[in-house]
């Protein structure tokens, strides 16, 4: 399996998978969908990966490039456990290639003892990074999220292809914002606990894990606050897919199917902290994991979900990647 960092309960990919399914899992990590596609494309069908976990909008181009194969749905009967709301998405209307692993959103996480202001929006985040927390903030190391932050703050659709928007975004992020960034870090939870940043843009599940780490480090989790990005933010859904040329396709299907059993799924959920899209979620939680902590960082109300936007892959993506790279160069350069 080739997946995002720290994205499954270690029991589920380790001992338990071995004892229940007689499947030995090997897990490798990537940091962005682009990395995943590069690695798969570079080996053209012989990468050796079985399961990959791309984010929804990237699926059509992966199908087109022949990087993933059709799922054998007869091997995944547990797909019926998934809430129909999270199936048949635009990128794969018939779920021939993918099935929802979980979904999440983006916000930020900050230390209230270091940042005096009450923060609620992306604009607040940007202002704080450029002011009080300058040189002490981190942002997600993925181009759409990094640029999205500015688009959302300025009430522009983050899927915009308008040149003027992109130019304005580049101008601001590269020339004004980048120099204040301490790190481009997609998984800041541990480093937040070490005390490396006082404010960090983060995916909800990772921010939730930060609470655990902060407690371990002897800090006070109550000092930290999670903010869902506003006025708009992202809704992403990561999906299990089977890579083209997968050497162990059958075991891959078996494992995916197993992970879609509600109890297993909830176990996974309480580890990584992302909504796994099971049917009757609230009932399941009260039955299986009543003591789940920080549920408000996993489950969001309807009006919150309404503010979330799904990414669309457009030709502008190259430009966004370019902006991220230039920002990185700029962020690293001001001390030279």
């Amino acid at each position: 399996m080739y997946t995002w960092g720290d994205y499954n309960d270690p029991d589920l990919v380790g001992a338990l998978a071995g004892s229940t399914l007689n499947v030995t899992m090997k897990v490798d990590y990537y940091a962005s969908n682009e990395d995943l596609i590069t690695k798969l494309a570079a080996s053209a069908g012989s990468s050796g990966f079985d399961i990959v976990v791309p984010t929804g909008p990237y699926i059509p181009q992966m199908i087109e490039k022949g990087l993933i194969q059709k799922l054998d749905k007869t091997l995944i009967p547990n797909m019926i456990n998934v809430d129909p709301n999270y199936l048949a998405q635009a990128w794969d209307p018939t779920n021939d290639y993918s099935v929802c692993k979980n979904w999440g959103t983006t916000g930020y996480f900050y230390d209230t003892t270091k940042i005096s202001k009450e923060l609620t929006t992306w604009q607040d985040f940007i202002d704080t990074c450029m002011g009080e927390a300058s040189g002490n903030c981190s942002v997600i190391d993925a181009a759409p999220n990094y640029c999205g932050m500015w688009f959302w703050a300025n009430k522009i659709n983050w899927n915009t292809e308008t040149k003027a928007d992109l130019d304005a975004c580049e101008k601001f992020l590269v020339e004004e914002f980048a120099q204040h960034i301490k790190a481009f870090d997609s998984y800041p939870s541990t480093k937040l606990a070490e005390g490396a940043y006082s404010i960090a843009m983060a995916w909800n599940g990772d921010a939730r894990q930060a609470y655990v780490r902060i407690e371990e480090a002897g800090g006070n989790p109550a000092d930290w606050k999670w903010v869902l990005g506003a006025p708009n933010t992202e809704l992403w859904m990561d999906n299990y897919c089977v890579a083209a040329g997968a050497p162990n396709a059958e075991a891959a299907h078996a494992w995916i199917n197993w992970d879609l059993i509600p109890e297993i799924s909830i176990k996974d959920l309480s580890y990584h902290g992302y909504h796994t899209g099971m049917k009757n979620m609230s009932q399941l939680i009260s039955e299986v994991a009543p003591d789940l902590v920080k549920g408000d960082m996993i489950f969001f109300g309807d009006e919150q979900v309404a503010t979330m936007q799904t990414q669309v892959i457009t030709p502008a993506l190259d430009r966004l990647i370019d902006i991220l790279n230039k920002s990185k160069a700029k962020a690293g350069a001001d001390l030279a």
Partner: peptide
């Protein structure tokens, strides 16, 4: 290689 991959998130 695996450890470098793991440094992107929490290192156990």
């Amino acid at each position: 290689v695996a450890l470098l991959g793991a440094t992107r998130s929490t290192i156990k």
